[in-house]
């Protein structure tokens, strides 16, 4: 096995790395949509925090301060979304589109103005990045067959945000299903009038959900520029926010299935490059673009109800107005 096995391990390793922002952003989307707010601005929030994190990390030489700045930027955008579509009952899709466009321009505009590198930040080194954590004994067991590479390559050697992202899944699950907040959150997305008559503020619930969404997107964005990469590049989130949206739908708004959807989409991303020009038995040469488009195609097929039904929270997308 030897080499093939290592290749598989490395592919899974890459899968984990590219899945991290998907997991965080998809869970962020899950939380807001469970509260009844559609957020197609996940992409914009991640991009903004990627920039804020890189710029701050470069200036302060601290990845943690960068993360803080990334989260703040993302939360501010989430609150803007809330201001537009909760407080002023604007269209949630339009607001999301606005944020995506705004951020796409603003990050480059500020980048050019501050760093004069055509929209990039200077490369980050040392403490300005989240460096890989090596598990104890990772080097020692590297040559142990099977378990060695799994431990030293797959499990060990990621930066802390990777572990944080995977930890977020059970945390969100617990929050949604096991806490008072979660119960109210799920109710708000299904029947806000029931929440209102129970003496709970729908507006407050939705703002809280947006803040959580902002925090998670902020971590995801920071990961792009200070964890996975080493600095900000223009449009560096490259549509991952929409893949996360797709994964959220694919996972039917439930944390664990969403995790697997993210891993599936991340895996497709990871193998796309490796499969380029490779002859696969029966299928022949798989166009890499097809694999790249597969998450979107799968999501459309799911939405069309051909592989199970994806039912969104009933009240999502509808501003809450008391009727009389």
């Amino acid at each position: 096995m030897g080499e093939d096995f290592l290749l598989i391990i490395l592919t899974f390793d890459a899968t984990i790395r590219v899945s991290v922002p998907l997991i965080l952003a998809a869970l962020a989307g899950l939380i807001v949509e469970r509260s009844g707010v559609i957020d197609i601005g996940l992409e914009g929030k991640m991009l903004a925090s990627a920039f804020a994190a890189a710029a701050t990390a470069y200036t302060t030489n601290s990845a943690w301060l960068g993360l803080g700045a990334g989260v703040v930027a993302s939360v501010l955008l989430a609150l803007l979304h809330g201001f537009a579509c909760i407080t002023h009952r604007g269209n949630q899709i339009v607001s999301g589109v606005a944020i995506n466009i705004l951020v796409s321009g603003l990050t480059v505009l500020l980048g050019v103005s501050w760093f004069s590198l055509g929209g990039q930040t200077p490369p980050l080194t040392g403490d300005a990045r989240f460096n890989s954590l090596t598990f104890p004994g990772a080097e020692a067991v590297r040559d142990v067959p099977v378990l060695g590479p799994i431990y030293s390559e797959l499990l060990s050697g990621h930066n802390i945000l990777v572990y944080l992202a995977f930890l977020t899944v059970p945390m969100v699950w617990w929050l949604i299903y096991r806490t008072r907040f979660g119960l109210r959150l799920r109710a708000t997305g299904e029947n806000p009038a029931a929440v209102d008559t129970a003496g709970i503020s729908v507006i407050r619930m939705r703002y809280l959900a947006l803040i959580l969404c902002g925090i998670l997107c902020g971590i995801a964005g920071s990961y792009f520029s200070t964890g996975h990469g080493a600095g900000f590049l223009r449009e560096m989130t490259a549509g991952k926010g929409f893949i996360a949206l797709a994964a959220m739908i694919f996972g039917k708004w439930r944390p664990v299935p969403v995790l697997f959807a993210c891993l599936l989409f991340g895996f497709l991303d990871a193998i796309a490059i490796r499969l380029q020009g490779v002859e696969i038995p029966i299928i022949g040469e798989m166009p890499v673009q097809f694999i790249q488009a597969l998450p979107y195609i799968l999501t459309v097929v799911l939405l069309a109800g051909f592989i199970g039904r994806a039912i969104a929270p009933k009240a999502s997308g509808i501003p809450y107005v008391k009727e009389h």
Partner: peptide
């Protein structure tokens, strides 16, 4: 809902 009796369910 609304009378959960604590932060945990």
């Amino acid at each position: 809902l609304g009378a959960e009796g604590g932060a945990l369910l």
